[in-house]
Amino acid sequence: MMIGVIDYGMGNLFSVSKALERIHVEYKLGDRPQAIEGCDGYILPGVGAFPDAISALEEHDFIDFIKEKVTDGVPVYGICLGMQLLFDSSEEGGRNTNGLGLFPGTITRFPGIDEQGRSYKVPHMGWNELEIHHPGKALMTDVEEDHVYFVHSFVVKTEESSILYATADYHMEVPAIVGKGNLVASQFHPEKSGKPGMQLLENFCKVMCKQ
C-alpha cells in the first residue's frame, strides 16, 4: 500500500510525513501528478491562504488530478486548508475564489460576534471536543469524542448534514471531519491532534486505502 502526499508548496509536509512513518505507512511526496500516479490513497495537506493554494494547485496540475481520483473512488484525505479547498468557494482574501467543488458549501470567516451580539476570538485556536454524528463510517473507527487541535479563522458553511461526520462547538457549529464516499477531510491537523488524530490517519491509511 502506498499513500501519495500532494506537494504543491503549501503544506506542512514534514509533520505529515513523520506521522505516516510513526504508523508504519509507506508514502511518497509528489509535486506533479506523474510523480504520485497509481497510489492507493492521497493526502492533500494545506497551510496558508485559500486563493494562493488554488493557484498553486493549478500550477502543479493537481486540480484535475484530484477530481479524477475522487471520481474513480480513490480515497483522498484533505487536511486543514486542504479540506477547505475541496468545497465550492471561499471568501478568504477579500474576494470569492472557486474551490474544487467536491463538497457542497462555502468557506467564510468566523463572524467574531455570536447570535447574542457578544464578540469572541478569531482564530478558533486550541483543543476542542469532537461531537460525532456518523460513528459508523470507516474513517471514524475507534475515534472517540475527544479533543483535537484546531487553528483556523475560516470555517466551512454547508447545508449538507450528511457530510458532517463530526463537528465542534465554537460559538457556532464548526465542521471538523467531513466525508462523502472515499473523500474525507478534517479541519484540524490529525498529526497534531494527539491520539484521536493519529487514529484518523491510521483509519484512512489502513482501513480506507487498504484494498
Binding site: 514534514f14 509533520s15 513523520k18 506521522a19 512513518e21 510513526r22 487541535y149 491520539k195 488524530g197 493519529m198
Partner: peptide, 11 residues
Amino acid sequence: VRSVASELAIP
C-alpha cells in the same frame, strides 16, 4: 525542531 516534529503529535 525536526526531532520534536518527528516524535510528537501536539503543536
